[in-house]
């Protein structure tokens, strides 16, 4: 069935002024989205309307107004057809502790309409792909949080959907488990050819995983653009060099020669290289094009220093998000302090 290539240029999820109002709360307010194939992050704080949107997309909760389509199927009238082609991984625990992962996933595969033999084969495959091996025959009750999350992901993938909706899949995981889960999510698209909508309230972790990020807040669309737009508007190079006998402080020597060549350096004394190891010895260089790379290389060679590393330092989504919000705040409130802080971050 459809690997990613066959659904290129097809809209996976489309909503048109979608609203959902509860007696006291407006969960979604005229939300219009257009999400293509790939891994899409849906970012918002708790209560921003993420879960409500997922329910509507699965055809389980009618929208108050507006329309939505998933894989070209109308959520209001073709819910069952959508749910046959879509996988869903809930945010909360949903696994019975007294059965094994295999038994549970086989059952869920059959609930998706797979014949018994296919259900067993797909279960074995899927559990292997999410990284569960021998333990899959043991009762789920004894699993770690990370393993449970993998079972939850497996049950969403077992019927080979065209799209999976993952609600906070990294919840409760430690940093290593988080990285593994994010890697797995990436593979769901790149290797399995399944489009992914993944929600999170952590912007940072979606940066590496998603092709596209949608930010919603208070049920309205705050921003929707590709991760590249978010993170690569300007490129910053992190450069680290060794010291030599002629240049006891290699970093300083390079800084002087680069500044002399008219290259703009971001921050000074490594202040803005926070978070990178060896921050004090790293120069952040604003790259304007190919020639900047050449210049750095030539300068280092000229000084006779060793180039430890030269890497692109991407902007973090968090910064852009903060900018978007402060810009908005600035428009309405025109608060000097907030704006200054926002524009300060903009420079690098």
């Amino acid at each position: 069935m459809a690997p990613a290539t066959s659904v290129v240029d097809v809209t996976v999820i489309a909503t048109e002024s979608l609203s959902k109002r509860f007696p006291r709360v407006t969960a979604l307010d005229r939300l219009s989205l257009d999400i293509g194939p790939g891994v899409t992050g849906l970012v918002g704080s708790n209560g921003a309307g993420k879960s409500t949107l997922i329910k509507i997309l699965l055809g389980l909760s009618p929208a108050t107004e507006g329309r939505a389509a998933v894989l070209g199927l109308d959520v209001a009238t073709e819910g069952a057809a959508i749910r046959e082609r879509v996988g869903y991984m809930p945010e909360h625990d949903c696994l019975p502790p007294d059965v094994s992962a295999t038994e549970f996933v086989v059952h869920m595969a059959r609930m998706s309409g797979l014949p018994p033999t296919a259900a067993r084969e797909r279960t074995a495959d899927t559990l292997r792909h999410v990284g569960l091996y021998e333990e899959r025959y043991r009762p789920i009750g004894g699993y770690s949080t990370g393993m449970k999350q993998r079972v939850k992901l497996a049950q969403a993938l077992v019927h080979d959907p065209q799209l999976v909706l993952l609600d906070e899949p990294t919840n409760g995981l430690d940093p290593v488990g988080r990285d593994e889960m994010l890697g797995l999510i990436r593979r769901v698209h790149t290797d399995f050819g399944i489009s992914v909508l993944v929600t999170s309230h952590l912007l940072g972790e979606l940066e590496r995983t998603c092709d596209h990020v949608v930010v919603i807040d208070g049920g309205t669309l705050l921003r929707s653009s590709s991760t590249r737009d978010f993170t690569q508007t300007t490129t910053t190079l992190a450069v680290e060099v060794t010291d030599s006998d002629t240049h006891p402080d290699g970093t300083d020597a390079l800084r002087r020669i680069l500044t002399g060549a008219g290259i703009k350096l971001v921050g000074h004394d490594g202040v803005d290289a926070e978070g990178l190891p060896g921050a004090g010895h790293i120069l952040l260089v604003e790259a304007t094009g190919e020639e900047t790379y050449d210049l750095v290389r030539d300068s280092v060679a000229e000084l006779g220093l060793g180039l430890v590393r030269m890497e692109q330092r991407r902007h973090h989504i968090a910064e852009v998000f903060r900018t978007a919000r402060t810009a908005e705040a600035a428009m309405t409130v025109a608060a000097g302090a907030g704006q200054q802080k926002g524009s300060g971050r903009d420079e690098h």
Binding site: M1, P3, L114, A118, D125, D160, F192
Partner: peptide, 26 residues
């Protein structure tokens, strides 16, 4: 892209999907 799918071993499912009545029976 796709050229790697087979190497990694992910097999997509092309078989029948028996739908709602079958799921209910199951």
């Amino acid at each position: 892209d796709t050229s790697r799918i087979h190497n990694i071993g992910y097999r997509s499912y092309d078989g029948v999907r028996l739908g709602r009545a079958y799921a209910r029976r199951s």
